[in-house]
Design a protein around this nucleic acid. Structure first.
Lengths: 111, 111
DNA sequence: CCAGAGGTACGATGGATGTCGTACCCGAAA
DNA sequence: TTTCGGGTACGACATCCATCGTACCTCTGG
């Protein structure tokens, strides 16, 4: 497969908003952005109650929106937020998303 | 028609991102948000190179996303950003959008 | 070697979406 | 009164999108 990530300069804001419009993808990004250390995480460690192929679809959407990058470990796949690049391209967006998501979680506690 | 605007508390972030994913709608919102006085503007004063019915479609999308409110003046329709309410519901989003749009305009000067 | 977990690719499907044209409505100007 | 600009409603259409199932791949652990 093509784990290649688009150059951050070529990423369109429309793509980003479209990617963040989906609740499941938004939750994933929020979860990644919530970690200040930007640790690499296993894709399988995210709660995504959909079919495997649908997960692949969502990861690709996030990848093509420039939000994440992925590493194929033969077995399992790992994901990391492209925080620095993304922040340089769209300053403030990640912070805003984090803040907004916090609010939503406070309003509708699922944990 | 139904110019009624949804209660800001019922507006979903997904709807907002979906609304802002479209370049034409994003441009309109950015133009509205760029005015610190939040002046009411005629809908016809926006450059939207699409059919009349398509314009209606876009205004509705923005209305249902809680971003704007409209006033029907019999003749012509007027629009105003729901800045205060929106800011209270999704703090920072409008500011971020304004900043990002400024960057885009600087990169691709159309004026 | 074989089973299973994690993932991709492909095809299908139902629903949303952006776009248009047409018909129609209302108010202002000629 | 007729015309025109601005707008809505409705129907049509092509496309996109989220979802799924199936087939297949690659490691790891029995």
């Amino acid at each position: 497969m093509d784990m290649t990530v688009p150059p951050i300069a070529e990423v369109d804001l429309g793509l980003v908003f479209r990617a963040l419009a989906d609740p499941m993808r938004r939750a994933v990004v929020a979860e990644l952005a919530a970690d200040p250390d930007d640790a690499e995480r296993a894709c399988s460690s995210f709660a995504m109650p959909v079919a495997k192929s649908t997960k692949t679809h969502h990861w690709r959407a996030l990848r093509e929106a420039g939000l994440i990058m992925q590493r194929d470990a033969g077995n399992g796949t790992f994901v990391r937020l492209r925080r620095a690049e993304f922040e340089r391209r769209f300053p403030g967006l990640l912070a805003t998303l984090t803040a907004l998501t916090r609010e939503v979680e406070a309003a509708a506690p699922s944990t």
